[in-house]
Amino acid sequence: MASVTITVNGTPQTREIETRVLLVHFLRDTLGLTGTHVGCDTSQCGACTVTLDGMAVKSCSLFAVQADGRSVGTIEGVAKEGKLNAMQEGFWQEHGLQCGFCTPGMIMAACALIERNPKPTDHEVRVGLEGNMCRCTGYTNIVKAVQTAAAATAAGKR
């Protein structure tokens, strides 16, 4: 067992946990933040994507103890005061989700993507999201959603 303090969506959380607990299980089972999903065992699908100190990471590939003292962002923390962020709005507007299971991870990855590259080409969006699988959309509308969000974010910053 180990004591960890992880800041999750801005709130420090201190818990006693088994050292083998994965970050994704810590979020889902210990903190009850079930928006982060598990879709595979091999870090291919990206449904578990969260941010760690601002970088998109796969929370199934980290032990919770590795996040000790660091800051984690999950889908639950993306909307502020009930207002969706530009990426969430983009996905809604462009129908970038169907079953919605991959969506939280996809949004976390896409937010990090446009932060790195505020004006991506369609190809850059596709390459940038290659760590996140979606079986419903064929990705066509996900690319549109990210572009819509990128444009809205750029307009907001002007």
């Binding site: 933040l33 079930t34 928006g35 909307a79 919605g100």
Partner: peptide, 20 residues
């Protein structure tokens, strides 16, 4: 626009493994 998206976009979906 889809009404189900409001919950799915914010991590509030109720998939079986999410239930406690």
């Amino acid at each position: 626009k889809r009404r189900e998206d409001a919950r799915l976009l914010t991590g509030k979906g109720a998939f079986v493994d999410d239930l406690k």
